[in-house]
């Protein structure tokens, strides 16, 4: 069956309203990458297993490969290009860089989205590790990713308790 039926949708992508016409079967990851030019939209498995496609939808991390773009109509979407808080985005980037949490970079946007969620929700390190365990990385051995997020949490705690 051909996609004769296109749906007009709009959502906020990294703070900017987008209006699109999409076929119902296109995943959010597909549309973000192919229609909206988001280079961080990485399809890794299409099964929700690997998390390379993780994006923030209405403030929570979601598998972009398992959400039809048409379902995101009206949603507030954030990708690794522009996470909610610019300071926090810069801090996440620096921590990932400093701790060698990036090798090939394919899983990185998904992990950044999880890190952003962890920081916004002030999770404990244990909770953070459980949360990060949602996504797969095949290069780094994960330990640098954990160090980066632990560092971010420690910096946050220090700021929180400081004068």
């Amino acid at each position: 069956m051909e996609d004769t039926e296109l749906h007009t949708i709009s959502f906020t992508l990294n703070g900017v309203t987008q209006r699109l016409r999409v076929a119902a079967r296109r995943s959010l990851t597909d549309v973000l990458g192919q229609e909206c030019g988001m280079k961080s939209a990485h399809m890794g498995c299409g099964q929700g297993d690997c998390g390379s496609c993780t994006v923030s939808v209405d403030g929570v991390p979601i598998r972009g490969c398992l959400l039809f773009a048409v379902q995101a109509d009206g949603a507030d979407i954030r990708t690794a290009e522009a996470l909610a808080n610019p300071d926090s985005l810069a801090a996440i980037r620096n921590a990932f860089k400093k701790h060698r949490a990036i090798q090939c970079g394919y899983c990185t946007p998904g992990f950044m989205v999880l890190a952003d969620y962890i920081l916004r929700n002030e999770l404990s390190l244990d909770q953070a590790i459980q949360t990060l365990s949602a996504n797969l990385c095949r290069c780094t051995g994960y330990s640098p990713i954990v160090s980066a997020v632990a560092d971010l949490l420690a910096a946050r705690a220090e700021r929180g308790s400081g004068p």
Binding site: Q47, G48, L66
Partner: peptide, 24 residues
């Protein structure tokens, strides 16, 4: 029926499920 989609959509992506209509 499309509820959370975390089981149905993986099957659709593999075309193990090919519903003509999706009720979200």
């Amino acid at each position: 029926i499309l509820a959370g989609g975390q089981s149905l959509v993986p099957r659709m992506n593999l075309r193990q499920a090919t519903p003509e209509n999706i009720v979200d």
